[in-house]
Every structure is written in structure tokens, then in C-alpha cells.
Design a binder for these strands. Structure first.
Length: 496
RNA sequence: GGCCCCAUAGUCUAGCGGUUAGGACGUUGCCCUCUCACGGCAGUAACACGGGUUCGAAUCCCGUUGGGGCUGCCA
């Protein structure tokens, strides 16, 4: 049992491609089989190394790992040659010397007559000679034209036979003028030679399948099973394209999505397992079956992807999140320091964001040395003398907090037990701050509700933030005091 | 145009001849609450249409409509 994913490196790994790769991967693993990656780079005009790298990298990021050494079709040209010779010798393929212009003329004529634009078979029975072979030519497949001939196959997803009259199938080109085999020939030879048993691919290949089946038969290969997965559509029901937003896997990574979320989303787009929504890759391998793949096309819905992403972000260890954020931060952002203070904020922020990018952004108040207060936000509040008095005594309170509360000692982050202890230490510190702060409030007959906002504004400059105690802990005494001072001056200024 | 495929809420889907048509995202309301989230509870919304078959159809058949794919010396 063996499946494959065979992208052409003419673009970045597309989410549609990622989904078929995923289907192939989990299906193979579910059945204890192998999953093969093959790069179909026979189109030298459009293939690029950077796309090849992107595809391999993106698959790896998604944890879709092939079992083989990656196969490159461009390195297998000799192999294809021998099979072409065989077809030629057996009269199953023929040389065609018609120029592109001539073909174009034929086409236009047929279209004008309201007929299907197919090759008219001018060279089908041509007598060959040396001189002729020296001129430009392609090699075409000689489709069986006997009356009533039909080619079909059973599709594993549609669970029915799909067949087409041979009259609908052109004498398609097997080898181009430059001697490079076309897609239909190369796939068949490679799939057969690598003994692929199940071909799971996009819907857009259904009409190629009969051609390929003819080739399997002509070359004496066993015909594999076929499963055609419906396509992913954009929000307007049209084929997914750049105007629908991100389409490449790497783009999603850069936008702060977790691979688990993308995998989970992609698999659920067209596949189901009862009412279940959340799947780890291990669970997918356990449950996945072609039986439960939907036949109809699915519209890509970013909202649901965001929900899954927030779900996985919430479940992550803060240190892992810090790594992931640093992994995608650009040159403009300074990398996050890996320490307990950052982790404490990340841990608190992770249930408030939907992407890593958003998470990084919400950390700005902490990462940046100082903050700038925004007039449009602060002008919504009417601060008075009492607020100034509060700030004064609050500053005093913070200043008197024991240094030990903020000091968590040095921790070796590579040490797992240390890492475990971190959370405990963290909890204790925040608990201490909470107790001290509540004592401070009740001593003065103040409540959290009435004082939280002014503190939040002073420390973060925004109306939304993580809980107050956690901010105090993360910021540390010195910066807290600085910000209270700055805020005090700021509101005195606007009062004037 | 021709050929092939598809059709349950805004979206992803469960359903496989008898269900109050189930779940999830979204959305709305409430609870929790130092803000925002998270979480909890409740609500909202669907079988494209028309014919058959059958005691009975979202489920089977045919047609209509709508959508997608292919129609390359791209894959």
C-alpha cells in the first residue's frame, strides 16, 4: 500500500496541495503503508528551485514527512525514453510533425464548425523516413478509435464509475518538441515504477485519468486505485486564488498560524469523523478513511481556521510559543527574550489572541522600554484630584513591594524539571502580588473595580490588557514606578 | 459550446427509507469578571427546485437550475 504527493514546483505550496498531501500521508499511515514525495519538474520554463524548497519546507513544517528519498522527474528522463521507444515500436504512439501554427488552424476550423477542437490525426498513419525524423516533432498517443470504445475507472470517493467515450479523448502529446515527456506520460511511468497503489489527488485531474489509464494499459502496467478529492474554493465560491488572501502554506505560517491548526482545518475541509472537530495528526492516522471524504467542493473559511488556531495556541506551553513567535518575527521586531517574565505574559495572553502575530503585538507594552500614551484613548477618561492621589499612593505601594517577589532566581530553560518548577514559582509570585495589592486596596477602602482601569492605562496605555497582577510581575518594580510617574505627568498636562 | 463531477443553515459537516434533521465555526443574549479574552449556559439558522418510486424520501431514480473541473507541446 503506497501513496504519493506529486507537486510541480511552479508555485509555493498551496493549501489545496497541502490538503491532498495530508490526505495521502494519513491514508498511507493509516494503512501501514508508505508515502512518497515526487517533484514533477518537467516544465523547465515554469519550475523554480525556490518553489521546490518551499514545498519541501512547508510539508516538513506540517509534519508531512515522506518515506522516500525525494524523486525528481527531471533526473529520470532516460527512464521515460525507454518506455516511449516501447510505445513507438508497438505502434501505440506516433510521431507528429504538425507545426503549432497548423494545429492552431485546425482548431479554429473545428471550433467554427462547432466541433470539439481535437487533433485531427494527420500524422497518425504517416510513413516515416530519416529526413522527416530530423525535423521538429512531438510524439502522440494513439487513442483506440474503435467504435464504442470507452475508458473508465472507479473513483473511491465518488464510489461510482466515471467513464468517457474515447472520442472525447485527443491523441494527446506524450513527448514535446524539446524531447521532454509531458505530465500524463511521466506520472504514469513514475507511479507504476514506484508501485503507487492509491492515487489521491485533486478533482481537476479526473479528466486526465482516462488518458492515464490508456497509458497504464498500453505499457502493460497495473492500474492503481483513484480517489479524486474536491477542490477548495474561495469565499465567493470561485477557485481559490490570491485575491482571497493567503493561499500558500508559508504565508499562513508567517501570519502566525500553528501547523497543528492548519492540518486540523485542512483535514476537516472535506473529511469528517462523526461530530469530532479536533484531531492531532496521530488521531488522524488512526481514524482517516477515504469513505468519509465529501464529494462536494468546500469553501475556505478563515474564521474557523482562526478558531482552531486559537484553540491550539491556548494548549501550548508558553516557551514553545515564544520560540514559534521568534521563528516568524521579521527584521523589524526584536526577538523575544526567553525568560519567566515573558513566559508569564505569553501564558496569560495566549487565551486572548487568535494568531502568533497578534500575540507578539500584544507584548509590545512589555518588550518596549517605555510606552507612549495615546490622546484619543486617554481623553475618554476624566481624571481628577483623587486619581492623582491614588497614583501617588499606588506608586508608594509598588515601591515597597519586596524585591524577592519579582526575583525568580535563575532557571535553566533547557532543563525540563526546572521548566516545570517555573510555573509553580510564577504562580507564587503572582499570588503574592495579588495578596499585597488586595491588602493595599482594602486598607484604603478602594475596590479593584474602580482602580483597575487607571492602573491598566498607566502600565499598558490601552483599555485592554492581561490581569493587573501579572502585569506588575512582568514589568517589575522599576518599570512600574517609571510608568506611574510618566502617567502622572501626562494627566497633569492634559488637565491644564 | 462539448465532456465529467457536485448540491443539508452564511461556512465546514453528521445523516445512508421512518430523527423534534445532530455537531462545529460565525452570530445573538445571559452568567463569570479588574478590562479584554477564556470558560459555562441559552438562542439563531439548512435538506436548491420539479417530477417520479414507496405506506413513508434529506436519503433511491429522472429532469431543471445553480456551482466547479477539464477541453495545452502546464501539472
Amino acid at each position: 500500500m503506497k501513496t504519493r504527493f506529486a507537486p510541480s514546483p511552479t508555485g509555493y505550496l498551496h493549501i489545496g496541495g497541502a490538503r491532498t498531501a495530508l490526505f495521502n500521508y494519513v491514508y498511507a499511515k493509516h494503512n501501514g503503508g508508505k508515502f512518497v514525495l515526487r517533484i514533477e519538474d518537467t516544465d523547465f520554463e515554469r519550475s523554480e528551485k525556490k518553489f521546490e524548497d518551499d514545498i519541501i519546507e512547508s510539508l516538513k513544517w506540517l509534519s508531512i514527512v515522506p518515506d522516500n528519498e525525494i524523486i525528481f522527474q527531471s533526473e529520470r528522463l532516460d527512464i521515460y525514453r525507454s518506455y516511449i521507444d516501447k510505445l513507438l515500436k508497438e505502434g501505440k504512439a506516433y510521431y507528429c510533425f504538425c507545426s503549432k501554427e497548423l494545429i492552431e488552424e485546425d482548431r479554429n476550423k473545428l471550433i467554427a464548425e462547432n466541433k470539439k477542437p481535437m487533433y485531427i490525426g494527420r500524422c497518425r498513419e504517416l510513413k516515416l523516413n530519416e529526413a522527416l525524423l530530423g525535423t521538429p516533432h512531438v510524439i502522440r498517443f494513439k487513442v483506440d478509435r474503435s467504435p464504442g470504445a470507452v475508458t473508465g475507472f472507479k473513483d473511491l470517493i465518488r464510489k461510482q464509475n466515471i467513464s468517457v467515450s474515447n472520442n472525447e479523448i485527443d491523441d494527446f502529446v506524450l513527448v514535446r518538441e524539446d524531447g521532454i515527456p509531458t505530465y500524463n506520460l511521466a506520472v504514469v511511468i513514475d507511479d507504476a515504477l514506484t508501485e503507487i497503489t492509491h492515487i489521491i489527488r485533486g478533482d481537476d485531474h479526473v479528466s486526465n485519468t482516462p488518458k492515464q489509464i490508456m497509458l497504464y494499459n498500453a505499457l502493460g502496467f497495473n492500474v492503481p486505485e483513484f480517489a479524486h478529492v474536491s477542490m477548495i474554493l474561495g469565499s465567493d465560491g470561485k477557485r481559490l486564488s490570491k485575491r482571497h488572501g493567503a493561499t500558500s502554506v508559508n504565508q499562513y505560517k508567517q501570519e502566525g498560524f500553528l501547523p497543528e491548526a492548519l492540518v486540523n482545518y485542512l483535514i476537516r475541509l472535506g473529511w469528517s469523523h462523526g461530530n469530532d472537530e479536533i484531531f492531532s495528526i496521530e488521531e488522524l492516522i488512526q481514524y482517516f478513511d477515504l469513505k468519509n471524504i465529501s464529494k462536494s467542493a468546500a469553501i475556505f473559511n478563515t474564521e474557523k481556521l482562526l478558531w482552531l488556531n486559537s484553540h491550539y495556541i491556548k494548549s501550548k506551553d508558553p516557551f514553545v510559543l515564544i520560540d514559534s513567535i521568534n521563528d516568524i518575527s521579521g527584521d523589524l521586531e526584536s526577538p523575544l527574550n526567553i525568560n519567566i517574565k515573558t513566559a508569564s505574559l505569553v501564558d496569560s495572553l495566549k487565551s486572548r489572541v487568535k494568531t502568533l502575530v497578534e500575540l507578539r503585538q500584544k507584548l509590545d507594552f512589555f518588550v518596549n522600554k517605555t510606552i507612549d500614551y495615546k490622546k484619543d484613548i486617554l481623553s475618554e477618561f476624566n481624571f481628577n484630584e483623587n486619581d492623582l492621589l491614588f497614583l501617588k499612593s499606588f506608586k508608594e505601594f509598588v515601591d515597597k513591594l519586596e524585591d524577592g517577589i519579582f526575583n525568580c532566581g535563575s532557571i535553566d530553560l533547557n532543563n525540563e524539571t526546572d521548566k516545570e518548577n517555573i510555573l509553580e514559582t510564577l504562580k507564587n509570585s503572582i499570588e503574592s502580588i495579588k495578596n499585597e495589592f488586595n491588602g493595599f486596596l482594602s486598607k484604603n477602602n478602594w475596590t479593584m473595580k474602580e482602580k483597575a482601569m487607571i492602573i491598566r492605562l498607566a502600565f499598558v496605555g490601552e483599555k485592554v490588557s492581561p490581569p493587573i497582577y501579572e502585569i506588575i510581575f512582568a514589568l517589575g518594580k522599576e518599570r512600574c514606578v517609571q510608568r506611574i510617574d510618566k502617567f502622572y505627568d501626562y494627566i497633569i498636562n492634559i488637565k491644564r
